[in-house]
Structures are given as C-alpha cells and as structure tokens.
Amino acid sequence: MDWRDVTVYVNGDEYTKTIPVQMTLAEFLRDELFLTGTKIGCNEGECGACTVILDGVAVNSCLVLAVHADGKNVLTIEGVSEGELHPLQQAFLDAGAVQCGFCTPGMIMTAKALLDRDPAPSREVIRKEIEGNLCRCTGYNRIIDAVEKAALMLQKR
C-alpha cells in the first residue's frame, strides 16, 4: 500500500496526516479527523450525502481522493456555523426540511455552494441543483423552500 503525506485545511484548521493513497476525502474526514457530519449513503457518487465544499466547489467527497485535497480548503457541515446557526441551517429547521436528517448535511453543503455563487436562485435552479442529493423522507419541496428562505435571509444581511 502506498502512503502519502497531505496537508488539508478543513473548516479553517490545518491537518497534516500520513494516509494511504486510495483513501477518499470522505474517509479522511470521517475516520482521520472524526468529522462524522459528512455522511456516506452510497460511497459511489449517487446520493450526495457526502457533499463538502472543496475550494468553493460542492463535491461528492466519496469520489475525491484525499490526496487530491492536499493543500486545499475543505468546508464541511461542522464548519458552516460558529455559535449561532447559519441562515441555511435555520431555514431548514423553520421550513420543516429535516426528518431523519441523514441527507441534511449534504443538502446544506450543496445549497451553500449554490448560494455562494448565486445569491438569488429561482426555484427551478434550486431544484436542479439538489437533484444529485437524494432524500427519502421529506419529498424535497420543503428543502427547496428552505433554500429560498435562506437566500432571502442572506440578502437582508
């Protein structure tokens, strides 16, 4: 097995680790850094539960090798809020967009990456954007409501 040293900036903290080259970013976050907020629903890029933001872009962390994140910035659900909830998190609660909660971290990360680049997306854009994030509980429309609400909250800031 090949090992490699990597330095990854996760939620603003620097981590240097020696890891096997085939380790995915999802495994790195969960098993090496104990950041279990990033979920694994399929481990093959089909469900979006593992979505994190890598240098500003939402990615399925189960499809990215950890060595690929060397020297890069990663934002996970644990880094979205400091102290008080991020408007997206608040909006998910207010809109009733959470049931079992397993898809929620990935949904919020996908939505955050969207709002970071498009602060006022239409419902159609939101719907399309979260297409790759599966949810078995909510029926999605409340999630779309939540993202719309959060966009308004962020615009008012």
Binding site: R30, L35, T36, G37, T38, K39, I40, T76, I77, E78, V80, S81, L85, Q89, Q90, F92, L93, D94, G96, V98, G101, F102, T104, P105, I108
Partner: peptide, 19 residues
C-alpha cells in the same frame, strides 16, 4: 412546534449507526 432533534441534525452532530 419545530422538531426537537432538528438543531443536532442541521449541524451534523447527530450520530447515526456508522458514526
């Protein structure tokens, strides 16, 4: 009322089986 387990879930603190 909003769900009591909501806060934990939106912050990623909820621990499921594999966590």
């Amino acid at each position: 009322l909003p769900r009591k387990d909501g806060q934990e879930k939106v912050t990623g603190r909820t621990k499921f089986g594999a966590d």
